[in-house]
Nucleic acid binder design. Structure first.
Lengths: 113, 113
DNA sequence: TTCTTGCTCAACCATATGGTTGAGCAATGG
DNA sequence: CCATTGCTCAACCATATGGTTGAGCAAGAA
């Protein structure tokens, strides 16, 4: 059902704030590797590695265009993650609702604040 | 707004299939560390470390009960992750819809299959 | 008390990860 | 042609991660 391997790669790729910043920027539109690297206080080669991680996780694509490499988000790679999280978020929500109810009950009892 | 540090910990914790299995089992109910370790072809100490990672990411709690440590999921730690994913899933979905539309258009043209 | 169970902790090891630099290639500009 | 720009690759380094074993503590059983 769920391809655990792919989910692993996606989660590992996202578990780094540098790469999440890249995803953020790419959600605004295409960016070259250089553009992604620019605000990052890191060498270009370092940024390029991060791009590589995102690419092999299937989260983005890198396309040669002249001498630049243009990156764009790949819709659909996050699907699996979304489904996974949604599954547990459901569970979480029901727990939260139970918690809320309990807290409301407590507050009603105490009749304070 | 979003606590990047916490999100980092949550994503790192989940980016390991062993720990996701633990989450899965815990979603069915409380489990002791030993119970979580049992199906894992790994030493108890190893499993205990994984439990520690989940705990310090805020995803579960570990409570001493007699000589056992009982683990349970902590509702609400996944909230931030869910929100993050939901944000991008929205983006992803709109892209996917565009893709679907494009594909439908292609199929209509080809009028095949 | 003594033995056993359930677990944690510390030390250690191998490999993965995140970063660097330096070399070098391919495309564009002079 | 040659220089410059945009990037990748390989080598290297430090630290983090995932696992092991062995010691040991705390609680329950005998």
């Amino acid at each position: 059902m769920v391809e655990q391997e792919a989910l692993d790669d996606v989660l590992k790729a996202l578990a780094d704030s540098t790469r999440r910043v890249m995803i953020q920027r790419l959600s605004e539109g295409e960016r070259t590797v250089g553009e992604l690297a620019e605000p990052l206080s890191m060498s270009l080669a370092g940024a390029s590695k991060h791009v590589g991680v995102l690419e092999s996780a299937g989260l983005i694509t890198r396309e040669r265009r002249g001498r630049e490499r243009v990156c764009s988000l790949r819709p659909n790679a996050l699907r699996e993650l979304r489904d996974w999280v949604a599954h547990y978020a459901e569970f979480w929500d029901s727990r939260l609702n139970a918690l809320d109810a309990a807290l409301r009950a407590d507050n009603a009892e105490e009749d304070d604040e």
